[in-house]
């Protein structure tokens, strides 16, 4: 009797395999088809890990002085390393130097002696920037910011769709470490994973403009970024105006440098629309109109001369 039951079960499973296997192979949720080992192993959990590593990089950016989930995090809602890099719009409020508040008891007061207790940034000379041995460090020259890179790299590997990882990494690579080639290569990796990202295109434009000294290429990249922004952000209920502000302002400044006044005015209009201080941009618009008028008048004066 047991042998018969086993035989029946075996035959049933064999029959099920023949129908389930083809369905499983064509199923979109089949992670076995993925070439990415991390995706197979972790599934959607890798996004949570990627976010954790991104925050970890910000912890390193602060030399370990960072609030836990139990502390007041209002001053750390946007990771400072991303806000300083211009990769994310800063939404931080509150006191970043004293998120712990006064000690709650003697154990808390005693325990603070064994943890980092001062708000510092890696690119400002690190944890001992005030120490005598580090007096000679020029704040802007400190390359300690390299210490955030392993976590950013891990974050990008776990979640290739997390765009701020690419833009933040590229900023610190090129700005503080002089690794422009690596920054561009990393952004290209990001662009392959996110072909419609206006943020990555914008950052590539900055590399072309600030490091490659190639304004034509920068303009092309930023115009493409603007086109992508219009295509994907504009239809949204709450579009990313911070990115528009960055793209429009850089395009405007590039046009100003090249005395393309019509173009300059056009981008100033966009800049004004996205800016939290439109009055400032209005002044620039007035100046630009005067410059355009002067530029247009110049050839006429030259032409009127005998």
């Amino acid at each position: 009797m047991p042998q018969t039951a086993i035989a029946i079960l075996f035959l049933t499973s064999l029959a099920l395999v023949t129908s389930l296997e083809p369905w499983f192979q064509s199923w979109q949720g089949n992670r076995a088809q993925s070439a990415d080992l991390l995706a197979v192993l972790l599934g959607d959990a890798r996004r949570a890990f990627a976010n954790h590593f991104f925050i970890k990089a910000d912890v390193y950016f602060h030399n370990g002085y960072y609030p836990s989930i139990f502390d007041n995090r209002t001053a750390f809602q946007t990771p400072h390393m991303a806000a300083d890099a211009g990769a994310l719009e800063e939404k931080n409020t509150g006191e970043e130097d004293d998120f712990l508040g006064p000690p709650k008891d003697w154990i808390d007061a005693f325990g603070r002696r064994f943890k980092p207790a001062t708000h510092t940034h890696l690119y400002q000379g690190g944890a001992r920037a005030d120490g005598p041995a580090h007096k000679e460090i020029e704040l802007a020259d400190s390359q300690d910011v390299r210490e955030i890179l392993p976590w950013l790299r891990a974050s990008a590997a776990l979640d290739p769709q997390k765009i701020e990882t690419y833009t933040t990494t590229a900023y610190w690579l090129r700005q503080r470490m002089g690794k422009t080639t690596e920054a561009e290569a990393f952004l290209r990796d990001g662009l392959r994973a996110n072909p419609d990202s206006h943020e990555i295109l914008f950052e590539l434009g900055r590399i072309a403009d600030e490091h490659g000294k190639d304004p034509a290429r920068a303009r092309n990249l930023w115009e493409l970024a603007l086109a992508k922004w219009r295509k994907f952000e504009l239809p949204k209920k709450d579009p990313d105006t911070f990115s528009l502000l960055q793209i429009a302002s850089h395009l405007a400044m590039l046009a100003e440098r090249e005395s393309r006044w019509d173009e300059y005015l056009h981008y100033l209009g966009l800049w004004k629309a996205a800016s939290p201080q439109p009055a400032e941009i209005e002044k620039r618009i007035a100046e630009a109109q005067a410059k355009r008028a002067a530029a247009n008048a110049k050839p006429q004066t030259q032409n009127s001369k005998p």
Binding site: G64, I107, F114, K115
Partner: peptide, 13 residues
């Protein structure tokens, strides 16, 4: 209290 890894890792005094 005895975990001073942060001080060591980030080169605090």
């Amino acid at each position: 209290l005895f975990d001073i890894r942060d001080l060591i890792v980030h080169r605090w005094p």
